[in-house]
Amino acid sequence: MAQRAAIVTGASSGIGLAIARMLGEEGYGITLAARRPEKLAAAAQELREAGYDVQDVAGPLSEEDAVKAVVAAHEQRYGRLDVLVNNAGVGIGAAVADIETKRLDMQLDVNLRAPILFYRECARLLRAAGSEHRNALVVNTSSISGKRGQAWLSIYSATKAAVIGFTEAMNKELNADGIKSTALCPAFVDTAMTDFVKGHVQPSDMIRPEDISEAVRMLLKLSPACIVPEIIFARAGEDL
C-alpha cells in the first residue's frame, strides 16, 4: 500500500490528469474522480500503464452522495489521505439577463459546493495525516477570473472568487491541525475548457497543464512551516 495517498477530482483530463500523473511520479496512491465513467476509466488505465497505483470512481460530484462515495472508496483502498485536489469545475458563459437557473446551479454546485463537501467528508483523514507529518495539503483550482471578474462569465468568476475566500478560511481553521490549503488561479490553460477561446488565443500561447502540476509538486515539498495561500499563473504578455 502507498505510504501517501491523494484524491483528485476532475481527473479525467487537463489540469486534474496532469496533477494525478505528477502525484503518481511522487509515489502517491491516487483516487481519480470525475463525472464521465468512460473518460475517467481511460485516464486511470493510462496512469496504471505508467506504473502508478490508481483507482477511479465516477459520479456527478455536484451530488452529495457521489462525494461521499469517492471518499469512502478512497479510504477503503488506501486508508489515509495526505492530499486532496478539488479540481472539478464547469464554466458556462452567458450575459446576466440570459442566465439559466439550471446552469447557474450547476456552476455553484460543481465549482463551490463540491469542494466544501469534500473538505467536510475528508476532514478526519486529513487531520490524521496532519497529525502524523504536519503537511497535509488541499489544492483548490480557482481561476484568474476569481481575482478579476470577467464579463459573460459572471457566475464562473463568482464561484472561483468564493473558492479563494474559502481557501483562506480553511487555512485559518485547519492549519493548527497540520493542514494547508492553496488556491490555484490560472489564466487560460490549454485544456478542453478553453476551446471556446482558441480562435482568439492560440494553444501555444496558453499555460500548460504541466505548469500547474509542477507548482503542486513544489507545494508537496515545502516544509510544514510554509503556507502558500494562492498561486496566480499569468500568461506571458498579459497584464499582471
Rank of each mutant, 00 (worst) to 15 (best):
Q107I: 07
S131E: 15
R113V: 12
L104T: 05
V201N: 06
A88V: 02
R127F: 04
M206C: 02
A11I: 12
A161D: 07
F166M: 14
E26A: 12
L219T: 05
Y78D: 03
L17N: 04
Q76W: 02
N86G: 06
A183I: 09
S204W: 09
E64P: 02
A73Y: 00
G51W: 01
A50F: 04
F188R: 07
I164H: 03
P203Y: 10
G149K: 05
R124F: 01
L174M: 15
D177E: 15
G51V: 06
E238I: 10
I144H: 06
G237I: 09
D53I: 01
A11C: 10
A2T: 03
I30Q: 07
A11L: 07
Q107T: 12
V189F: 14
A94H: 11
Q107M: 15
I207E: 04
I179N: 06
A66I: 09
D65Q: 13
S142Q: 03
G16A: 13
I19F: 08
I19E: 01
R35A: 12
S12K: 08
S12G: 07
L17Q: 12
L153V: 09
Y52L: 02
M206V: 06
L222D: 04
A136L: 01
D105Q: 15
R134F: 08
D195Y: 13
G27Q: 02
A58Y: 06
M106L: 15
D109A: 15
A34M: 05
D82R: 00
D105G: 05
Y156H: 01
K180G: 02
M106T: 15
M22P: 04
L104H: 07
E238T: 14
A88R: 02
A94R: 12
P37Y: 10
L219N: 03
A215L: 00
D53L: 10
K39T: 14
E49Q: 14
A88E: 09
V189Y: 10
Q55Y: 06
C226V: 15
S157R: 00
S142K: 07
R127G: 03
R120T: 13
T159V: 07
G79V: 04
A151V: 12
S145Y: 12
I232H: 09
A176H: 12
L17F: 14
G16V: 13
E230V: 00
E26Q: 14
V110P: 07
Q107A: 11
L40W: 03
L81F: 04
N86H: 08
A33D: 03
G16Y: 10
V139L: 08
A73M: 03
N87V: 11
G146Q: 01
A43C: 08
R36D: 14
T159H: 02
N87R: 04
L125S: 10
S213M: 02
V71T: 07
G14H: 10
S157C: 10
M193T: 11
K39Q: 14
V83Y: 08
E100P: 06
